[in-house]
């Protein structure tokens, strides 16, 4: 982390890392999608629609991953005062929100044949919806603040407040509606999903995660450039 403290060094390192990450993402997607479509069998109950899971589950996982990443970055802003922490938090927000939206839309599409409706007030879908609202709140708060260091601190506080509250919201929504099937991938007694489905799922999850990291690095680099441009503009305005 210390080595990355310098934005220039971060730019150099991320620049040399990006092509490899992008390539890895492409390969993982090729393998993952091939498996999802041709190797993994159709579900005996759900038929072909089960394949939407290969997008839905990774997206839902990344929706939570995104907020966790923002929370760590927020600690970086408030506690360690790391110069790149706010850039990381800012770049993660729209990507996290996008994956949350993907999780919602795919969940809705999956729900149509499963439940017979586009939307069901199912506990997980509802939690994800609230998570999306919180992402939008973070983005809106940042947009409303024009002083960057102030925006960094306030957004970090909101993010951490959300981090504390999200498990409580999740619990309350679960408690409110326990209609959904219980967790099936990560169980103490081992996964109950057949390996033919589990392996493609994990490959796809890895592919999506790599995509997230790639996009995040690109987003951070873009944001760093934007801030440099702003700094130069400010300096140009000062010169007489």
């Amino acid at each position: 982390m210390i080595a990355l403290a310098n934005p220039a060094r971060f730019n150099a390192l991320s620049g040399s890392l990006l092509p490899w990450l992008a390539g890895l993402t492409a390969i993982l997607f090729a393998v993952g999608l091939y498996q999802a479509f041709f190797v993994s069998p159709a579900d005996y109950q759900q038929g072909e629609t089960v394949r939407i899971m290969f997008v839905h589950v990774p997206a839902a996982w990344l929706a939570m991953f995104g907020w966790s990443l923002m929370s760590i970055a927020s600690l970086g802003v408030l506690v360690w005062r790391h110069p790149l922490a706010d850039v990381a938090a800012q770049a993660a927000a729209p990507i996290g929100a996008a994956f949350t939206l993907i999780a919602l839309v795919t969940g809705s599409l999956w729900g149509r044949p499963m439940w017979g409706t586009w939307w069901e007030w199912d506990a997980r879908l509802t939690s994800v919806l609230i998570l999306l609202l919180m992402y939008l709140g973070v983005i809106a708060l940042r947009a409303a603040l024009d002083e960057p260091s102030r925006a960094a601190r306030l957004v970090a506080i909101l993010t951490l407040a959300g981090f504390v509250n999200i498990p409580i919201i999740k619990f309350s929504v679960d408690w409110w509606n326990t209609l959904h099937q219980p967790a099936s991938v990560f169980r103490v007694d081992g996964p109950t999903i057949h390996p033919d489905i589990l392996v493609p799922l994990l490959v796809n999850a890895l592919a999506f995660t790599c995509l997230f990291v790639t996009l995040h690095l690109v987003g951070m680099r873009t944001e760093l450039t934007r801030r440099r441009v702003r700094g130069l503009q400010l300096r140009a305005a000062e010169e007489r």
Partner: peptide, 8 residues
């Protein structure tokens, strides 16, 4: 005493 505002 050094105070920064907007990176300035």
């Amino acid at each position: 005493l050094t105070v920064e505002r907007g990176g300035r």
